[in-house]
């Protein structure tokens, strides 16, 4: 491919040479088809994500995800079992405290299934967000030694955590069989909810990753933020307990829609809440678009400040 110059103003004083080079390039293109010209200079302003470039680096993307998955539980006894340990123990604690002691409602479902179904997407959300935010700082070495589209790094953590998510999801099926719960027709909506979840994580992830390179506070603030956000999401209680006047604000959190969608689709005790779905997917879309834009805007300084 040929990266020449976007505008005439960039051509500068040696345009004659460029023309010569471009001609040479054209000739060689006929022979080899693979001579490229790269122009390196200071860039400013907003840029769009270069999907073609990310596609060119797909092998790197693949191997980085592979590395993340393969090494995450290396040299541990439980291994991949750790993927389900967190939601299981949270489920046990929540069932005892909120289900038994406090007596929080669960739409008539066993509290164990009720909370675990919410904990699966939530655990993914919190894990992937944490991992992607720290990803640039922990891959500092890669950043400062080689070039590749920087977006690959936070996206790698997000994709690698999907493996844990899928394994935790299998346990939902086990619990459903155990309690004799059949999925509802709304289960066909699950892929949409998974997409909303991914968009939310990716969007927030790109924002926070880019910010955390310059301001380490972000990394310290995230565990706190995630914990607070959990109580603003219907993890330990059903959506029905939220007062109507707060509902529009509550819907701004796309994870409310996601958790609601998982419960309605898999457990079928309630209908999906379409106001949550609509507002939540809108917010997720805004997050992923602005996140990508902010990331692209700041990525040029990553290697200098990381």
């Amino acid at each position: 491919m040929l990266y020449l110059f976007q505008s005439a103003s960039e051509v500068g004083p040696w345009c004659e040479n460029i023309i010569v080079m471009a001609q040479i390039t054209d000739q060689q293109n006929e022979d080899t088809g693979s001579i490229s010209i790269q122009r390196i200079e200071h860039t400013t302003g907003w840029r769009v994500v270069d999907f073609r470039e990310i596609w060119e680096y797909r092998d790197l993307f693949y191997f980085l995800v592979y590395r993340d998955v393969k090494t995450r539980y290396a040299q541990s006894v439980l291994g991949i079992g750790w993927a389900v340990a967190q939601p299981i123990f949270m489920m046990i604690v929540f069932s005892v405290i909120f289900g038994r002691l406090v007596g929080v409602g669960s739409d008539g479902l066993p509290y164990v299934v009720f909370s675990y179904t919410a904990l699966v997407p939530w655990t993914y959300f919190s894990g992937a967000l944490g991992a992607s935010t720290g990803s640039l700082t922990s891959n500092k070495n890669l950043l400062s030694k080689v070039y590749f589209p920087r977006l690959i790094i936070p996206l790698t953590s997000i994709l690698a955590k999907l493996v844990d998510f899928l394994i935790a999801l299998i346990l939902v099926a086990v619990l459903m069989i155990w309690y004799g719960i059949a999925p509802s027709i709304w289960a066909v909506m699950l892929p949409v909810y998974v997409l909303i979840m991914l968009a939310t994580v990716a969007g927030l992830g790109m924002w926070l990753t880019a910010l955390s390179v310059q301001f380490r506070d972000v990394s310290y603030g995230i565990p706190l933020g995630i914990q607070l956000l959990m109580y603003l999401s219907p993890v330990v209680y059903p959506v029905s307990v939220v007062p109507d006047k707060f509902r529009p604000y509550y819907a701004l959190n796309p994870m409310s829609a996601v958790i609601d969608g998982f419960r309605s689709g898999l457990l079928g005790a309630t209908e999906p809440q379409f106001d949550l779905l609509l507002i939540g997917s809108g917010v997720a879309l805004v997050l992923i678009v602005t996140g990508a834009m902010y990331f692209k805007r700041t990525e040029r300084i990553f290697a200098d400040v990381v």
Partner: peptide, 28 residues
């Protein structure tokens, strides 16, 4: 700068051909 890890403050560089940079052995 030539390997595109960091951007120049001003000026430009033009490279013809596929570039590999080896700033460290065993990166990754």
């Amino acid at each position: 700068i030539l390997s595109r890890i960091t951007e120049p403050t001003s000026g430009s560089a033009t490279i013809k051909g596929r570039v590999s940079s080896l700033l460290e052995v065993g990166t990754g």
